[in-house]
């Protein structure tokens, strides 16, 4: 087992633990907290997909990760603008 594979497994474990923390933020009652949690969760999912896709050599995981990352950013900024205007 190479050192790269071990470090990828360590990263996956860290990301899964972080996703639980992101869910804790996501379930907070404030809208802005939900927004932060959602953005963070999508980021963690993207990196997780990149890692798994690299490990098992699944090419389309990279496309999904790229799409999720970009749309997550766009969605977060759009919702933040809507939240600001709605006040």
């Amino acid at each position: 087992m190479s050192i790269l594979l071990i470090s990828e497994y360590i990263l996956i474990v860290a990301l899964v633990i972080f996703m639980f923390a992101a869910v804790r933020i996501l379930t907070h009652k404030t809208i802005a907290m939900g927004l932060i949690g959602c953005a963070t969760f999508s980021l963690a999912i993207s990196v997780l997909l990149l890692t798994v896709g690299g490990m098992y050599e699944i090419e389309f995981y990279k496309d999904i990760a790229l799409t999720l990352l970009l749309l997550g950013v766009v969605g977060t900024i759009a919702f933040a603008m809507a939240l600001r205007r709605g006040s």
Partner: peptide, 9 residues
């Protein structure tokens, strides 16, 4: 996100 929070909540 910080801007939205500052002006809304």
């Amino acid at each position: 996100m910080a801007n939205a929070y500052y002006y809304s909540e």
